[in-house]
């Protein structure tokens, strides 16, 4: 299954590295990634694939729990939501 990860927060070194390292540890394969920085705030967006959708809940909780430590708001959800909302 494919999922989306967004993170918005105060820019500091290593945020992307820590998120992607954890994704790799959990076996998620990144398909698309983009990041923008506006003054001190960054916005990160990536789409990744997870072979076993049964592991998504644990992965979502695990990564969203990193929010506070990284000073960011991290949200994960299934890709189909973006497809439904933004494509006709």
């Amino acid at each position: 299954m494919r999922f989306v990860l967004t993170a918005v927060g105060v820019n500091k070194p290593g945020v992307l590295a820590q998120i992607t390292r954890r994704l790799a540890e959990k076996g998620a394969n990144i398909l698309d990634i983009s990041q923008k920085i506006l003054s001190d705030v960054y916005a990160l967006f990536l789409i990744a694939e997870l072979e076993d959708s049964g592991n998504f809940k644990e992965l979502k909780e695990d990564i969203e729990a990193m929010s506070e430590r990284l000073g960011a708001k991290i949200v994960l959800f299934e890709e189909s939501l973006l497809r439904y909302m933004h494509r006709i």
């Binding site: 989306v4 967004t6 918005v8 698309d32 983009s34 990041q35 923008k36 916005a43 967006f45 789409i47 708001k73 949200v75 959800f77 939501l81 973006l82 497809r83 909302m85 933004h86 494509r87």
Partner: peptide, 17 residues
Amino acid sequence: MNFQLYEAIETVAMVEL
């Protein structure tokens, strides 16, 4: 399917904010 950063952020902002 290609999505843009702003589309993902818009979705999250709708819920969070």
